[in-house]
Design a binder for these strands. Sequence first.
DNA 1: TTGTAAGCGTTATCAC
DNA 2: GTGATAACGCTTACAA
Lengths: 339, 339
Amino acid sequence: MTDKEKSWAIAEDVARMAGVSRSAVSRTFTPGASVSAKTRMRVLEAAKTLNYHVDINARNMIRGRSTFVGVITSALVSPFRAQLLAPIAHHLSTRGLLPILMNADDPDQTGYALQMLLNYRIAGVIMTSGAPPLALAREYLERRVPVAMINRAPELEGADVINSDNASGGALAARALFDSGVTRFAFVGPHTTHFGGRQRCGGFVDALASLGVRKSRVTLCNTLIASYEAGQLAARELFAAADTAPDGVFCATDMVALGFMDEARRTFGRRIPDDLRVVGFDDIQHAALDSYRLSTIAQNTDMLANSVVDMLSQRIADFSRPADVRIAPVAFVRRATTG
Amino acid sequence: MTDKEKSWAIAEDVARMAGVSRSAVSRTFTPGASVSAKTRMRVLEAAKTLNYHVDINARNMIRGRSTFVGVITSALVSPFRAQLLAPIAHHLSTRGLLPILMNADDPDQTGYALQMLLNYRIAGVIMTSGAPPLALAREYLERRVPVAMINRAPELEGADVINSDNASGGALAARALFDSGVTRFAFVGPHTTHFGGRQRCGGFVDALASLGVRKSRVTLCNTLIASYEAGQLAARELFAAADTAPDGVFCATDMVALGFMDEARRTFGRRIPDDLRVVGFDDIQHAALDSYRLSTIAQNTDMLANSVVDMLSQRIADFSRPADVRIAPVAFVRRATTG
DNA sequence: TTGTAAGCGTTATCAC
DNA sequence: GTGATAACGCTTACAA
């Protein structure tokens, strides 16, 4: 700050020029305040020539809260997480809220994340699936900072949650594989540790059962995380023993599916969809690439984002409202891996 | 705000409990202020029991500027852009700055972007390559808001820029293709409209010339944007006429390369790397997938992010300092598409 | 080193 | 509808 000249006009400047009081200026820029059309016009004119803009920091201070929303997300490299970011930013901005990005993977940031955001008197917090521990969310709630989450177990009292309809997605996948003639099924993904994975697996298994598929024809291949490498590993595992090798797999995420496909093709010579059918989950960009053309269960990112922001802004208005848990529908996208 | 009970302790509460003045509290939390070790300790203790944290909004207001940095980026779905986000957030946070995300693709947001961020008295703005128009950057600078950019033409007086060494990257690609025995070269990408594309193409062409490759053996295939679809289109174009069909191509970005590879393989039966060698640029996640194993020129995202944040914080400290233009080195990553 | 007091730019309250 | 005035929570001269 070597240059001390003030670079912005303040309300008083505008008031003086327009020949009104500071209050009149303030009211002009406060939606729903009572100002006569005449003074409003005079103020706006003066504001324009002076290039005046309300200092939102000052406004926030007096109102005791800001319009910032912490968006805590992990694995920004995860394509699905990244796809969620744009609609979240969009829907926040339509409600006058601004997203502050916090990367939960970054130990430097995670340590300070809670405190930092609290120091900023943020209006609320959005957490996407993955790393951010529940303890963190709990701390926010204790300080009466609204928390809304996407694709997380609704186990936190007072936090709003929107989840994709994972179980239905699993059922859709089961149906698609079954209809394409698969006889030996497999689920690949983190179906014990991960909330979404568990639901997807559950829906898949239940649907197969009600389609009359015997349990012995369904293999569950658990992975630690939902990554490309995990998919590759799973393929090596499943195709090692020829008698349990599946001819149709449902993967917990598209990334897992890509890894599975690549390994099945390269190392085990499977042709897709002739020898092997695959269904993924998420509908990330990669799924549409010509080398994969992966049939998948698409999450509705725009609806997820819109809902999470909607719930959050409702809780900002009324912190004590009952917790809201919503389900976003999913859709089967048929490409080339299901015949 | 139905609940009016105050949820945070303020400096006065801490002062009272510690038996000191408000100033002492303030000084304790202001790095480099003069407080005796004894009072500092008393204050810290009281702050801890009261769970006090400085209200950064108030601090920002009195200091006339905030610690928020607008990160204006377009095409968040672009994998490379997304990969840049995490390190930017990281390096900002190490300097006590917080990223506010603005999606330049969103017309709703772009319209208000300038004004909104100005209203927040943001400390500065980071722009990544792509959409955000130069006029926007100019407006910020006029209002003395520091602007730093990644991978953009350094055509704006007073804005700092860090670019990857695109020309050297092009040269590395040329060398790699040449060494692997390519005889008919092609560049695919936006080499007229796009700053980075132009530099990459230039470096490629120059290096081929100095390697003694005749100009007639180098085809330049211009595309409007650097997308997967553009790569597919380019392949159809280049392989349509058998006599100009290249056996080695350098693509302006990895996404273009993926499209080119897929189309070359599927529609024109090219085997890679036997019939066709490919080099990309960026080193996005996709490049490492088994179906591609794309040799590419890797950008150093961490250095790009660190530099842009460094330049920005220097300009925040001194707005009038001479503009800084830096170059980040790139590296060739050999995978399977260059033999 | 410490406390006192004067702001920072805004909005909320209250008379008029 | 309008204008004075008092907050909001903090930092920072200035004086002690």
